[in-house]
């Protein structure tokens, strides 16, 4: 019953407001130019001015707390080897600049594409001989946000050819696959109906250049995989596990869709 009504409401919302589009999202006005690359539009463009202002001011941006926490962790020794990230990588402002724009990335050691979170835990296991940070832990979010923040303003630039190609294809398949009781794919909302209204929301393109993102709805900062899990639940589909190949491959496809958009981490969204 609940699902039927929810589905009907989704459909009614789409039909009733389908013709209405957000002016800013179309025109690139209000200084939004750098968040629009060709036909790619960052979620920033779809956000209300108040939310954008919160992201733009480094003091008001609540996600900066995680950046600062990550900065601390970067130079704090952890694990049996007695090393910190800094021991090998030095100053993150130099060594990590641009790194996150290439993630998810094929890793020859494991023979598959991995995301930034998995790369961090790989370093912890191998170099630091430390326990992995659990998914969505404060530490993993802080380190991921800190590292990606070093690339802020740089264009996303993931590789999808060569050894990454088969993983990219799997991610693409996942993006277009209908799933769940509402029979929706990622593309249903974020491609076909992008820019249209879903009740009071304007559907964004589902770009990922601002993750990890501080979401007002969460009242905290979270990873892209947490967001994807949320989407799956709203589609009445069973979410996959954190770190599953399904999600990492999808992350790669999503990142490729946004190649060229600037890294905004930590973005602020509703």
């Amino acid at each position: 019953m609940k699902y039927v009504i929810a589905g009907a409401m989704v459909a009614a919302g789409l039909l009733a407001h389908g013709a209405v589009r957000a002016a800013d999202a179309q025109t690139g006005g209000d200084g939004l130019g750098k968040y629009i690359v060709g036909d790619k539009r960052s979620g920033y463009v779809f956000a209300e001015p108040d939310t954008r202002a919160m992201q733009d001011d480094d003091f008001q941006n609540p996600g900066m707390v995680w950046v600062e926490a990550g900065k601390q962790l970067w130079s704090t020794p952890d694990g049996a080897a007695g090393k910190s990230c800094q021991t090998c990588h030095g100053d993150a402002a130099t060594s990590m600049k641009g790194v996150a724009t290439h993630y998810p990335k094929f890793n020859p050691r494991v023979g598959k594409v991995i995301d930034l979170e998995q790369r961090i835990d790989m370093c912890r296991a191998k170099a630091l001989q430390a326990k992995p940070y659990p998914w969505e832990s404060h530490e993993l979010l802080a380190m991921t946000t800190f590292i990606k923040n070093q690339s802020r303003g740089m264009p996303m630039n993931v590789a999808v050819d060569g050894p990454a190609a088969p993983f990219f294809e799997k991610g693409k398949e996942s993006f277009y696959r209908r799933r769940g009781q509402l029979d929706l794919s990622c593309a249903s909302c974020h491609e076909t109906l992008e820019g249209r209204h879903l009740r009071a929301d304007v559907l964004s393109q589902g770009q990922t250049n601002g993750f990890p993102t501080y979401r007002l709805g969460w009242q905290t900062l979270g990873s892209l995989q947490k967001r994807i899990k949320g989407c799956d639940k709203q589609m009445r589909a069973d979410p996959h596990a954190f770190g599953s190949d399904e999600y990492v491959n999808l992350e790669l496809y999503l990142a490729w869709r946004g190649n060229g958009l600037p890294v905004e981490t930590p973005a602020v969204r509703k």
Partner: peptide, 8 residues
């Protein structure tokens, strides 16, 4: 206060 499309 707006109600999000996905109930958020």
């Amino acid at each position: 206060v707006t109600i999000g499309g996905c109930g958020g």
